[in-house]
Every structure is written in structure tokens, then in C-alpha cells.
Design a protein around this nucleic acid. Structure first.
Length: 269
DNA sequence: ATCGGGACCTGCTTGC
DNA sequence: TGCAAGCAGGTCCCGA
């Protein structure tokens, strides 16, 4: 489900509600996620305070007294703060209960995770990630170095979290459209000038989406339960056969690495 | 080192 | 109406 803008929207939605709050109770209804929710998590963190919620790539990090929780929403997860008690539904995996309400993780496809660690920054899932696309570390030089000698398609390289994090299937297509680059082009065969444009396009599309609360295609809701409104701003994603906004040619859908890619054959070379 | 593909899941839509 | 196939916002891990 969520790419960086949706995870960031979730973070902003839940953070004010739980930061500074004491965890009164933890309810795990279904430990089955991508990796099982650790046995004993409930006792381990009950009574601890949430000192803040940060984000690294698509991981949400909850900072507690003496440990950190790594939460990933996978393809279909959402994390919501519920001020009033609401009966749990199917696929509600974990509740964190506070005096002011409940933080609840729902994840039908179970590709998400809830993990416990001392220091998330050194955790194996996080330690080797590439730079954040909205931070200063994501530069033309960095992208150029990552592309050097690579034969993979630029779209697949953009989605590689060891190169740059947070860009999933929607925003990879959208950023390449903005930059005018064919998603199938070999990464190593793109000029520095065009990579410079791509860096700017990635930043712009992610920032604009965050402003709109992310993209809701089917079922995404942010921490407050509201959908994101960036879908109407998508230029190519899920627009196969529709006319390109720029040139009128029909948007094409192809498959790369088992994922759908959308692009304009005229505007993107 | 790089790459391609399979794996992990449920639920919705589409087509026969 | 029923059923099977295809598709969906992620990413780890394996073998070549």
C-alpha cells in the first residue's frame, strides 16, 4: 500500500496523539505478519513512554524508554489512532492502548511487520539503506554513482532501497514521467543532466504528494483515518490508454520485474 | 556484484 | 450465479 508519502502521512497523523503518552496495554490479536510479532512484546513495552515517532524509508520507528519498535505497513497495512474505543475487525493485528485512545495496526495481506530492537539505525533491515530522497544526501552525484555501469532499467533502480529509499511503484512511474525518461532505459545509459532532472522530479512528486496526504488508490488511510488526495495528480499511474496530458499519446502499461509500469512513449525517451 | 524470479498473503475485479 | 484467473501501494532471499 504505502510508499514514502503515505508512511509520512501516517507518521504525522499518529505522532501528536501518542508522543509523550504511556503505553497502558498492548494487545496482539494475530502475530502473523511478514515476521511474527515477537512473543513477549506486550510485557516488554507496557508501561513505557512513547518519546517520538520517526520514519526511515518506509519504516515507522516508535522510540520508547529503552528500545525502539520498527513498524512496516507492507502493501496493505494502516496504522490509525482511535480516540474512542472501537471493536476490533478482521486483520486488526496489534493495539497499543493509551489513556487518550488506541493506536491500531490493520494489515490484511500481512506483508507488514512489528519488530522490537535496541537501536533501529543498526538493525539489519535499516542499516544498509540508501539516502532519504528528501534529504541532502540524495544528490545527482549519488544517483550517477549508483547508475554507473548498471544495466538494470532505471525504474527498477529507483525502486531499489539500497540506492534511494521510499520510492515505490506509483512514484517511480510518476517521477520518470516528469523527468521525461523512458522507464526501460538502462540506468548506466542516462546523462548526468537527465539524472539531475530525475532527482528534482523525485523530490517534487514526493513533496507534492505529502502535501496532499498521500495517494489513496484503493484503501489507504492516514493516521487519522482519512484518505490521501494525490491520486488526481497522478499523470500516468493506472492511466493505461488514456491520453498523455502533455502530448495526447495514449499512456502505455508494461511490466517490469513483475510490476506494472506506466509511461508515455512520446514524452519519455 | 548484479540480475531475475519466487516467495510471502488477502481481497477485489474481470471474464468465461 | 459460480469459479478461476489476474491484479494490487513491498521487499527479502535465493540461485544463476
Amino acid at each position: 500500500m504505502p510508499e514514502l508519502p503515505e508512511v509520512e502521512t501516517t507518521r504525522r497523523g499518529i505522532s501528536p496523539h501518542i508522543t509523550g503518552q504511556l503505553i497502558e496495554q498492548v494487545i496482539v490479536r494475530d502475530r502473523r505478519l511478514r515476521w511474527p510479532v515477537p512473543v513477549g512484546l506486550e510485557q516488554r513495552i507496557t508501561g513505557q513512554k512513547i518519546h517520538g515517532v520517526s520514519r526511515r524509508a518506509k519504516y515507522l520507528l516508535l522510540h520508547l524508554d529503552d528500545c525502539e519498535l520498527i513498524v512496516h505497513l507492507g502493501m496493505s497495512g494502516n496504522l490509525r489512532f482511535l480516540p474512542d474505543s472501537t471493536a476490533a475487525a478482521t486483520h486488526d493485528h496489534v493495539d497499543w492502548v493509551f489513556a487518550t485512545g488506541t493506536l491500531r495496526l490493520n494489515d490484511p495481506r500481512r506483508f507488514g511487520c512489528v519488530l522490537l530492537t535496541k537501536h533501529a539505525a543498526t538493525h539489519r533491515l535499516i542499516a544498509k539503506l540508501g539516502p532519504e530522497p528528501l534529504d541532502s544526501g540524495f544528490t545527482t552525484e549519488h544517483l550517477q554513482a549508483a547508475c554507473q555501469g548498471r544495466k538494470v532499467a532505471i525504474k527498477q533502480l529507483l525502486m531499489n532501497a539500497h540506492v534511494v529509499v521510499g520510492i515505490g511503484n506509483i512514484y517511480a512511474s510518476e517521477a520518470l514521467f516528469r523527468a521525461g525518461i523512458n522507464p526501460r532505459r538502462a540506468a548506466g545509459n542516462i546523462s548526468r543532466e537527465r539524472l539531475h532532472a530525475l532527482v528534482a522530479a523525485v523530490r517534487a512528486v514526493l513533496e507534492e504528494s505529502i502535501e496532499q496526504g498521500g495517494t489513496t488508490l484503493r484503501d489507504f488511510v492516514g493516521g487519522d483515518g482519512r484518505p490521501g488526495y494525490f491520486r488526481i495528480a497522478l499523470k500516468v499511474y493506472e492511466r493505461a490508454a488514456e491520453p498523455c496530458e502533455r502530448c495526447g499519446a495514449p499512456i502505455r502499461r508494461i511490466v517490469q520485474g513483475q510490476r506494472a509500469t506506466y509511461y508515455c512513449v512520446e514524452c519519455q525517451r
